[in-house]
Design a protein around this nucleic acid. Structure first.
Length: 284
DNA sequence: AACTCGGTCAACCGCGCGCCT
DNA sequence: AAGGCGCGCGGTTGACCGAGT
């Protein structure tokens, strides 16, 4: 639809007034809890309503690719890889169509995996299976990368003082991020199932923020307590009844188990709010 | 030890589509 | 019918890392 408007397309937002780059934990927390409460009917208005200095598109991307509760990260099975290859033959670079056939996978991740791994596997005849994210990206390290990759690939993490778990890979994870500009450590709750799998999440280094270490310590304590979300450990305030019904199609469509996970997720969010000091919006 | 290079992946950007007025 | 608007998609970028030299 090029040339539809003679003076060009209006920018989606005022680029001078929005933050760019990696997401901080408080931003993630705000976005996640806002969507849990109010849904995402209007991405353009969402940042303002949620108190985020972000472009609506940026919020959407963050939610769709990382914060969505039903998301899976890394550790692609052979079946999934073959499916991607097969679908790519059919659809070409229609990543969203391919992603639609792979529950829990995002178009962005599939696109990245295709360019960095599967394409080479096809071209080079390298039949080695087992893609999993190995090294930390520029500013974001997923816990899946830490616990879900072969030990050899975690050497750099060990060198940095990271305790690398020997447990089996997990599908979802809180994401540890290190903001390259601020040096601020981040923890991101990315999925409802993170709560279930959090006991696999042994430790993450945050030498730049003592509070995060404290948070992690407390998480470890909780996670070890064999019951997570920690109903007795955390004084969870009731969720007000007057709040609009959340739009949680993905969560609710899964029946009782999904509803239970959604509930776990709510508690996990609330816990983060409290721990991060965001429950009273003092960030603003 | 220092440097270079390639791999990786989160995030950004611009465009097309479809809905609404 | 035409234009405005928002969303979603796909391509691209840029920063970081480990391996190699």
């Amino acid at each position: 639809m090029v040339g539809k408007r003679a003076r060009g397309r209006a920018p989606c937002c005022d680029k001078t007034k929005v933050k760019k780059g990696c997401w901080s934990p408080s931003e993630d927390q705000k976005l996640t809890s806002f969507i849990q409460r109010n849904g995402h009917n209007n991405w353009r208005a969402l940042p303002r309503l949620a108190g985020l200095l972000r472009c609506g598109k940026s919020c959407r991307l963050r939610w769709v690719n990382y914060l969505r509760p039903d998301i899976k990260r890394g550790n692609y099975s052979r079946d999934e890889e073959d499916t991607i290859i097969r679908l790519h033959k059919s659809f070409g670079n229609k990543w969203s169509k391919i992603a639609a056939k792979l529950p829990g996978r995002t178009d962005n991740e599939i696109k990245n995996i295709w360019h960095t791994y599967l394409k080479k596997r096809l071209e080079g005849g390298n039949d080695q299976s087992g893609y999993s994210p190995n090294s930390s990206p520029e500013c974001c390290i997923s816990a899946a990368a830490m616990v879900g990759t072969p030990a050899a690939n975690n050497d750099h993490l060990k060198q940095e003082g990271i305790i690398v778990s020997s447990v089996a890979p997990v599908n979802v994870e809180p994401i540890k991020k290190e903001d390259s500009k601020s040096g601020q450590g981040m923890i991101v709750p990315s999925a409802a199932a993170a709560a279930e799998d959090l006991h696999d999440f042994e430790s993450i280094p945050f030498d730049s923020d003592d509070d995060i270490w404290d948070l992690l310590d407390s998480l470890n304590t909780i996670a070890d307590s064999d019951q997570f979300p920690p109903e007795e450990v955390l004084p969870l305030p009731p969720i007000p009844n007057e709040l609009p019904k959340p739009e949680m199609k993905n969560i609710e469509s899964g029946g009782e188990a999904a509803a239970a996970r959604a509930e776990s997720y709510k508690k996990w969010l609330k816990y983060l709010e409290i721990e991060l000091g965001l429950d009273d919006d003092k960030d603003n």
